[in-house]
Amino acid sequence: MAKTKAQAKVKAVKPALVVDDAKQEESLEGTVLYNVPFPKDLKQLKGMAPIIIKHPYHIDYVHSYGQDSPFFAGLANKKLLATRCPKCGYTYATPKLHCMWDGAECNWVELPETGTIHCFTVCHFGSEEFLKETPFILALIEFEGANTRFLTRLIGFDPNQASLDWIGMKVKPKFKRLSKFKPTDVYFVPA
């Protein structure tokens, strides 16, 4: 997927029209070729340019959330669930069915209604799947009473005003009305 927005910034030290590594974005659209020129003399073959072809590969996976399924059912019902170890009390804000300290099977519990930003970034580029959503904000959220954190999208912060001051700010979850059964069914906004 081609990204259309300008990818290069003007360097201060150079004339205004000179950009760092200016280029047109490559795309995989193209024509089908059914033959290529061939030399009479086979010795010339080693000087031949490589033949490069397109090789599509599409798959639909059947992915089960398995033991983590209750978490996604929780999101669909506007509840943010964690797991807690009955033995040591360690609380996993991103659920883990078995405790990593003692191996005990954890129970499902609800997380508090607000959390704080532990760290974040603004993605101006991304993997192909998310490129069209840039710029977006990723953050790990910490919760009172939970020992681990939760990865989410932050909404309601200006991606062009990124600041370390965001770390420690209070945020609260919001849930998508129409669940997609993805961890993005929840996102966080300023509390």
């Binding site: 983590d68 993605c123 991304g126 959503e133 977006f136 990723l138 961890p183 993005t184």
Partner: peptide, 8 residues
């Protein structure tokens, strides 16, 4: 839990 949020 990680990739679908914006894996990068």
């Amino acid at each position: 839990f990680d990739y679908p949020v914006g894996g990068f």
